[in-house]
């Protein structure tokens, strides 16, 4: 469990990061909390001759609020999310989800930016950010660009981020209505067998908006537009929830692993989503 030798860089600012990325190309990787990358390096599954530690880079931390949006710096940790009272009030689904990620020790180190940028289908934040319609800010030598979370993921560990770009922030519109992050896992620290992120807006007894994303049920997070659409205009009766589940099942593509075979995962995905919808509706 010892990684191959690597150069350790610890720049103070983003320009320093970008110049290192330009200089070393695909031999360099940036590291936020390191909780995905370091194990891969120790297993010698990731070969990173130049490791760029972001922890001293200015401007990547902090949670800032505006009227309609919330901005999370890439280096905001899961622990920061759990402890931020204003965030818990304005976007409680973030806290509910963060509490289901790993364990306290990992959450002290694990960051939002690392979680969403790595492209690991097991991570919880990518699906959550798709549910919330987040936008990821990428900074590279060509400048800054925003990519919607729903367009960011291409395949396992493959994203819209170029090798010389750094994900610096995640911005979400302030979520409305009821919420739920429902996750089934085998034990503390495990990736999801299935997880569902749900935001629902209720007006009178009717659902007027719904957003649904699933985690670890494909090689990318799955934002299911059809599942959300199946709820809109309904009173979320059994038939509507069943329609949403059926629509979601059409969008996922789980594979067998130690958590279980495909049929089990499909079944649990449906159960988990149904429970998430019920819980979000009760809170809406």
């Amino acid at each position: 469990m010892i990684p191959a030798a690597f150069e350790y860089h610890r720049p103070k600012d983003l320009d320093g990061v970008l110049s290192l990325l330009t200089e070393h190309g695909d031999e360099a990787r940036v590291m936020a909390g390191g909780h995905s990358l370091i194990p891969m390096m120790k297993l010698r599954m990731a070969d990173v001759p130049h490791l760029i530690d972001l922890q001293d880079v200015a401007g990547l931390t902090g949670i800032s609020h505006s009227d309609n949006t919330i901005r999370l710096g890439a280096m905001v940790t899961q622990h920061d999310i759990i402890g931020d009272a204003k965030l818990a009030e304005r976007a409680p689904i973030l806290r509910e989800a963060a509490l289901q990620i790993a364990d306290p020790q990992v959450r002290y180190m694990g960051t939002v930016g690392g979680n969403v940028a790595n492209g690991d289908p097991g991570n919880d934040m990518p699906g959550l950010m798709q549910c919330l319609d987040a936008v990821f800010t990428l900074v590279g030598p060509e400048g800054t660009r925003d990519v919607p979370a729903r367009d960011f993921y291409e395949a396992a560990y493959m994203t819209a981020r170029e090798d010389d770009e750094v994900l610096t922030a995640v911005t979400i519109p302030v979520p409305r209505g009821g919420y739920a992050y429902e996750k089934q896992k085998r034990k503390i620290g495990d990736y999801a067998t299935a997880a569902a992120a749900v935001q629902i807006v209720k007006d009178g007894g009717t659902c007027t908006a719904a957003s649904i994303a699933m985690t670890n049920l494909s090689d990318t997070p799955v934002y299911s537009d059809a599942a959300g659409a199946a709820l809109i205009g309904t009173s979320l009766d059994d038939a509507a929830r069943a329609a949403a589940v059926a629509a979601m099942l059409g969008d996922i593509d789980p594979t067998e692993d130690n958590r279980g075979p495909v049929a089990f995962k499909i079944h649990v995905a449906g159960v988990i989503l149904n429970r998430a919808i019920e819980r979000a509706w009760a809170r809406a």
Binding site: R259, G260, A263, F264
Partner: peptide
């Protein structure tokens, strides 16, 4: 008796 094996039994 992990989750999926119990699920399989029920199934």
């Amino acid at each position: 008796h992990d989750h999926w094996r119990i699920w399989r039994t029920a199934h």
